[in-house]
Computed example of a mutant assay.
Amino acid sequence: MRRTHDARIALLDEDQQTRDMLREYLEGQGMHVVPVANGTELRQLVSQEPIDAVILDVMARGEDSLGLLREMAEQPGTPPVMLLSAVASDIDRIVGLELGADDYLAKPFNPRELLARLRVVLRRGNAATARAAATPVLTFAGWVLDPTFYVVRDAAGRDVDLTSGEFKLLHALAVHAGQVVSREALLRLVHGDEAEAFDRAIDVAVSRLRAKLVRHGGGALIRTVRGEGYLFAARI
């Protein structure tokens, strides 16, 4: 269970001033901040110690931060990730969310806003964990989707390599099989009630998810209903 009052937060940010400010502020709110110098240290920390959330600077010098984000998102049990970036374009935000980020905050930012968003991410993670534990394994067209272990297998029994965001999207559609789900509803199901409406992010996410499903013979699983949203076509 991810805590909100005494959470352990891993922090990778290339700017010393930002690191010091965040550490002082968040620890003043009862959290414990663990700064790391690079992606290697972050991977090691997350794999060996209990970490409740990660704050990751997209522009960290010498790091492929988005590649690191994707790598982490593909690992079961990875803590939620909040991205920080000096670039606030729509496309950067879309890519970050699609690769598995749980939130995206542009620099400069008010530390009080970051704290509020971080608490939401932690609460959302707790709620998602509870829902997954209470949700049965789903089977459809010979496929298996296990929400507890974030595992998807195709009809041939092969694992389907999805990011955490793609898994959440597929699960959200599958549990509403036979129903048209709007883009706004999908955004809330994947990113929580506090998510801002951003249709293009969902379109990009569905497109990438479909491409992976096609490679496993599942191209017909998700249908687009023009002007309405998306429909999971297989029977559960």
Score class of each variant (00 low, 15 high):
residue 226 R to T: 12
residue 183 R to Y: 01
residue 193 D to N: 09
residue 57 D to M: 05
residue 85 S to T: 08
residue 100 G to C: 04
residue 170 L to I: 04
residue 28 G to M: 10
residue 203 D to P: 02
residue 213 L to D: 07
residue 98 E to T: 13
residue 138 L to R: 12
residue 186 L to G: 06
residue 54 V to H: 06
residue 200 R to I: 09
residue 8 R to I: 07
residue 107 K to F: 01
residue 165 G to W: 00
residue 154 D to I: 04
residue 52 D to R: 07
residue 15 D to I: 11
residue 33 V to E: 09
residue 58 V to T: 05
residue 94 I to H: 09
residue 157 G to F: 08
residue 217 G to F: 04
residue 73 A to N: 06
residue 34 V to Y: 11
residue 66 L to P: 03
residue 108 P to E: 08
residue 221 L to H: 09
residue 219 G to R: 11
residue 63 E to P: 04
residue 24 E to A: 14
residue 134 A to L: 12
residue 99 L to F: 06
residue 10 A to Y: 09
residue 221 L to S: 04
residue 226 R to Q: 11
residue 38 N to P: 05
residue 118 L to G: 02
residue 63 E to K: 06
residue 227 G to S: 10
residue 146 D to Q: 06
residue 42 L to Q: 05
residue 157 G to N: 10
residue 38 N to G: 12
residue 156 A to M: 10
residue 5 H to E: 15
residue 185 A to L: 13
residue 49 E to S: 14
residue 36 V to A: 04
residue 70 R to L: 06
residue 149 F to R: 15
residue 180 V to D: 13
residue 208 R to E: 14
residue 31 M to P: 01
residue 154 D to Y: 08
residue 33 V to R: 09
residue 164 S to W: 00
residue 131 R to N: 10
residue 142 G to Q: 06
residue 50 P to T: 05
residue 58 V to M: 12
residue 62 G to D: 03
residue 18 T to E: 09
residue 202 I to C: 13
residue 185 A to E: 15
residue 101 A to V: 02
residue 106 A to M: 10
residue 135 T to Y: 02
residue 224 T to H: 13
residue 47 S to K: 12
residue 28 G to F: 10
residue 40 T to I: 11
residue 178 G to L: 09
residue 133 A to N: 11
residue 47 S to F: 00
residue 112 R to I: 03
residue 107 K to H: 02
residue 20 D to I: 04
residue 89 S to M: 08
residue 90 D to F: 10
residue 75 Q to D: 01
residue 71 E to S: 12
residue 174 A to T: 08
residue 199 D to M: 00
residue 62 G to L: 02
residue 86 A to S: 15
residue 129 T to S: 13
residue 232 F to Q: 11
residue 38 N to M: 02
residue 63 E to V: 05
residue 59 M to P: 00
residue 113 E to K: 13
residue 230 Y to S: 06
residue 97 L to T: 01
residue 199 D to N: 13
residue 111 P to H: 07
residue 232 F to G: 07
residue 202 I to T: 14
residue 210 R to W: 04
residue 80 P to M: 03
residue 29 Q to H: 15
residue 86 A to L: 08
residue 22 L to N: 04
residue 196 E to F: 01
residue 161 D to T: 11
residue 100 G to D: 07
residue 65 S to F: 02
residue 150 Y to F: 11
residue 173 L to P: 09
residue 231 L to C: 14
residue 230 Y to W: 09
residue 45 L to Q: 07
residue 178 G to T: 08
residue 10 A to Q: 09
residue 23 R to H: 05
residue 7 A to K: 07
residue 21 M to Q: 12
residue 148 T to H: 12
residue 179 Q to F: 04
residue 19 R to G: 00
residue 57 D to V: 03
residue 1 M to L: 10
residue 187 L to Q: 15
residue 55 I to N: 01
residue 235 R to D: 13
residue 120 V to D: 11
